[in-house]
Design a protein around this nucleic acid. Structure first.
Length: 581
RNA sequence: CGGGAUGUGGCGCAGCUUGGUUUAGCGCGCUUGCCUUGGGAGCAAGAGGUCGCGGGUUCGAGUCCCGCCAUCCCGACCA
């Protein structure tokens, strides 16, 4: 439990709850955050926190802070406004593109509103750290970030202005980075457990930043923006970008290799067209995609029934920028209009192929001529592949690459991301320290982020019912709500006041003291979702009792006044226990 | 940026197809009074809207046309 709480009465607190669902919200957490008066929208992707929302937000923040400190990280506060020069040093002034919010001052100096703070922290290390004796360090802050999102979405889930806890570790060597990374991984597990969140840790692609390892903390949810590939059998977990998988289809019956032949296929272009035309399963086709890798055309083959994972492809061909080729390029490379590309006779271009192509016997593919396809095409006899790569996009029905059991697919909300960054920033910003062996070296970095707003939303996604939010006690705006049923009854009013003052000494108590109908107050209380409700009515007071009801279980109990404090303490202690780390 | 939808008192919506019975309406909320107190009470009386903005058509536009803006959804995008 943290700190002493200011006295709070519903009659005083600004909690403009809504009976009706706001039209602009689609997902549960967004609807409830508005209805329970946690947030209000200012503009697309910009939200104001109201007093109740802020209380929750601060609790989450505080849990993060405590666990970060416990893990040995040190809190900073860096400016949001950051000079362009710093971003130019690492090329990110350009790389970040339009997502970076830019601003110019009256002297015409360029600045960015920080979307993340690698450069600024690295700059501090560059200036202040010169010896291995000062390392390792892990610096963090909990700060407002700005990203000009192409599409803000789902309330606080994807915003243009949001709060992120970002941490950066600097180590002497790989071993040290491993230690820092593991410490953060553990801290994250603690943080999410304490927030009452069930998370799954998935492997993620390291992306263009060239790190070595990256994992995401995901909250499984249908409204998640990422697809997770999970193996229920061995525990393998990765996001779709990263996921490896194996073919789950039965191998085709062995077939005699037949003679290659050209077929007239007027206007038959897509795999769908082709399966109809040839009356064959999509697995029979050799899909040929022409891409531009850093401006150079390459051909990528895959079996007709699988999709290509662009991230895997990008990594496999070591491309910085990869895109589908435009029509002109395709016509130039294949000498045919779009839709008739094939590997046979394709020249002056690297031909990559997914492993899935290996098993195709007597395949069908484009003839590199308008309205013509080839059938009975076979690897090595009819065409060559320069390099086999794994670009299979995992799909329903695929098997786990590790244990060959069937994979399961779920969606998830990314609440945290940990990352072994390597030397990317220390190198480009020329950060050096003198090691024990008297040699100059680059510190090796890790970075670790948590979306604070998103974490709050995810908690609600995971914990609510038809009546409203069910807060885990660790992040609840108040631990207890005392409802005085009829404040016009002197006895009810007096005893409620007394209990409120007494309990406020040990707990965070919200006092529902408004002169409203009981139903109204119950509904509001459920919406707001405080874990424990104490109901004081004239009826029960006749027996010197009050009612205690828990939000989660809806269990009600009549408790004699004299036992109340003990009972409440017991209940609350129990609640906290289930979120202990 | 492409596709779709929406914009009418604080909130949720109807009215628009077929322009004039509309003085723009309903529910919630709000104000005042009475009444009521175990699951968003009741009665009565009120306040509150240049119908997103601009232009056009018309004798007449919330309603039709054009343009713009905003919001939401899908997609693209997202170290």
């Amino acid at each position: 439990m943290y700190g002493s709480y200011k006295i709070m009465r519903m009659s005083h607190l600004f909690v403009p709850t809504l009976k009706e669902e706001p039209a602009e919200a689609v997902i549960t957490s967004h609807k409830l955050m508005i209805r329970a008066a946690l947030i209000r929208k200012l503009a697309a992707g910009l939200y104001s926190y109201l007093p109740l929302g802020l209380k929750v937000f601060k609790k989450v923040e505080n849990i993060i802070r405590e666990e970060m400190d416990k893990a040995g990280a040190q809190e900073f506060s860096l400016p949001i406004l950051t000079p362009a020069e710093l971003w130019q040093e690492t090329q990110r002034w350009d790389v970040f593109g339009p997502e970076l919010m830019r601003i110019r001052d009256r002297q015409d100096h360029d600045f960015a509103l920080g979307p993340t703070h690698e450069e600024v922290f690295t700059d501090i290390v560059r200036q202040e750290i010169s010896s291995y004796k000062q390392l390792p360090v892990n610096f963090y802050q909990i700060k407002t970030k700005f990203r000009d999102e192409i599409r803000p979405r789902f309330g606080v889930m994807r915003c243009r202005e949001f709060t992120m806890k970002d941490a950066y570790s600097f180590d002497i060597d790989e071993k040290g980075l491993d230690r820092s990374y593991k410490a953060m991984r553990k801290a994250y597990e603690n943080i999410f457990k304490r927030c009452g969140l069930n998370t799954v840790i998935v492997q993620a692609d390291v992306g263009a930043m060239g790190g070595t390892q990256s994992e995401e903390f995901m909250v499984v949810s249908d409204v998640g923006e990422e697809v997770l590939v999970l193996c229920p059998s061995c525990g393998y977990a990765a996001n779709l970008e990263k996921a490896e998988s194996r073919d789950g289809t039965r191998p085709a019956k062995s077939e005699k290799i037949a003679k290659m032949a050209e077929v007239d296929t007027p206007d038959v272009k897509t795999i769908e067209d082709l399966t109809g035309f040839f009356k064959t399963a999509p697995g029979k086709f050799i899909k040929t995609i022409i891409c531009l890798s850093d401006g150079n055309p390459i051909a990528v083959l895959a079996r007709g029934d699988i999709e290509i994972n662009e991230t895997k492809l990008k990594n496999a061909v070591q491309s910085r920028q990869l895109e589908l080729a435009d029509e002109k390029t395709i016509e130039k490379v294949t000498k045919a209009p779009v839709g008739f590309a094939g590997p046979v006779g394709l020249k002056n271009i690297m031909i990559y192929a997914d492993e899935s192509v290996k098993g195709i016997v007597n395949g069908i593919t484009g003839a590199n001529k308008k309205d013509r396809h080839l059938k009975n095409v076979n690897l090595d006899r009819d065409y060559k592949v320069d390099k086999f790569i794994d670009v299979r996009k995992a799909a329903e029905g695929d098997l786990c690459a590790k244990c060959s059991k069937k994979l399961s697919f779920k969606r998830g909300i990314e609440v945290g991301h940990i990352f072994k960054l390597g030397l990317k920033y220390t190198k480009s910003m020329d950060v050096k320290f003198l090691d024990k062996d008297q040699k100059e070296k680059l510190p090796i970095m890790g970075c670790y982020g948590i979306g604070v707003d998103r974490t709050v939303a995810a908690i609600i996604e995971q914990s609510s019912d038809q009546d409203g939010i069910i807060w885990p006690i660790t992040v609840a705006p108040f631990e207890i709500i005392i409802i005085a049923l009829n404040v016009n009854e002197k006895k009810v009013k007096d005893i409620s006041e007394k209990l409120y003052h007494n309990l406020s000494r040990s707990f965070q108590v919200l006092f529902e003291d408004r002169d409203l109908s009981p139903g109204f107050k119950f509904k509001d209380a459920d919406l707001i979702g405080c874990p424990i409700k104490i109901i004081i009515s004239e009826k029960n007071l006749q027996n010197d009792q009050v009612e205690v009801k828990t939000r989660r279980t809806r269990k009600v109990e009549s408790v004699p006044l004299k036992d109340l404090e003990t009972k409440i303490k017991e209940l609350i202690d129990n609640e906290y226990k289930s979120f202990q780390v």
